[in-house]
Deep mutational scan, measured.
Amino acid sequence: DWREIAKLAEEALKKQQPVTVNGQTFNDPNEIKKLLETAQKAI
């Protein structure tokens, strides 16, 4: 669910920690931002 992904990505950016989505881990803040943008577009 994109809403859940957006929430996870936002928290990861705030806490500056990696986030795992669908078994894929994102460590890079730039990648997390991209993930968040993608999720927000999909909602």
Rank of each mutant, 00 (worst) to 15 (best):
V19P: 01
I43H: 05
K33A: 14
V21N: 00
T25G: 03
K34I: 12
E10M: 12
T25I: 09
L13R: 01
I32K: 01
I32E: 01
A39Q: 02
K14C: 08
K15T: 14
A39I: 08
I43Y: 07
V21K: 01
I5V: 08
K14I: 14
V19W: 02
I5G: 01
N27P: 03
W2R: 00
I32H: 00
D1I: 11
E37V: 07
L13C: 04
E10Q: 13
N30F: 12
K34V: 12
L8Y: 06
L35H: 00
D1W: 14
Q16H: 13
L36S: 01
K15W: 11
V21C: 04
K41R: 08
A39F: 03
G23H: 05
I32D: 00
E4S: 09
A9H: 02
I5Y: 03
R3C: 13
A39T: 03
I32A: 01
T25Q: 08
I5P: 00
P29Q: 08
E37Y: 06
V19D: 02
A42D: 04
G23M: 03
T20D: 04
R3L: 13
E10T: 11
E37N: 05
N27V: 15
T20Q: 08
P18D: 05
A12M: 03
N27S: 14
L8A: 11
N27A: 04
D1F: 15
R3D: 11
N30V: 13
K15F: 12
K15Y: 14
L36N: 02
E10F: 10
V19I: 15
K14N: 13
L35E: 02
L36A: 02
G23A: 03
E11G: 04
K41V: 11
K7V: 11
N27T: 05
L13H: 03
G23C: 07
N27Y: 15
E11R: 05
N22S: 06
E10G: 07
P18G: 13
D1C: 09
Q16C: 09
V21D: 01
T20W: 05
I5C: 03
Q40Y: 15
L35T: 00
D28L: 05
F26M: 07
K7G: 07
I43L: 15
F26I: 12
E11F: 04
K7M: 14
T38F: 13
T20N: 06
A39E: 01
K7P: 00
D28P: 05
K15M: 13
E31Y: 08
L8C: 04
E4W: 08
N27R: 13
P29A: 11
I32P: 01
Q16W: 07
E4M: 13
A6P: 00
N30K: 13
L8P: 00
E31W: 09
T20Y: 11
A42Q: 14
E31M: 10
A6T: 06
A12Q: 02
E11K: 06
E4C: 14
Q40N: 14
L8K: 11
R3H: 15
Q24L: 12
A39W: 03
E31P: 00
K7I: 12
V19M: 15
D28A: 05
L13P: 01
V21R: 00
Q16N: 15
Q24E: 13
N22Q: 07
I32S: 00
T20C: 10
L36R: 02
Q24W: 10
Q17V: 11
T25P: 03
K7S: 10
W2Q: 02
A6V: 14
K14F: 11
E4Y: 11
I32V: 06
T38Q: 13
N22A: 07
Q40D: 05
E10R: 08
F26V: 08
L13D: 01
N27W: 15
L36P: 00
K33S: 07
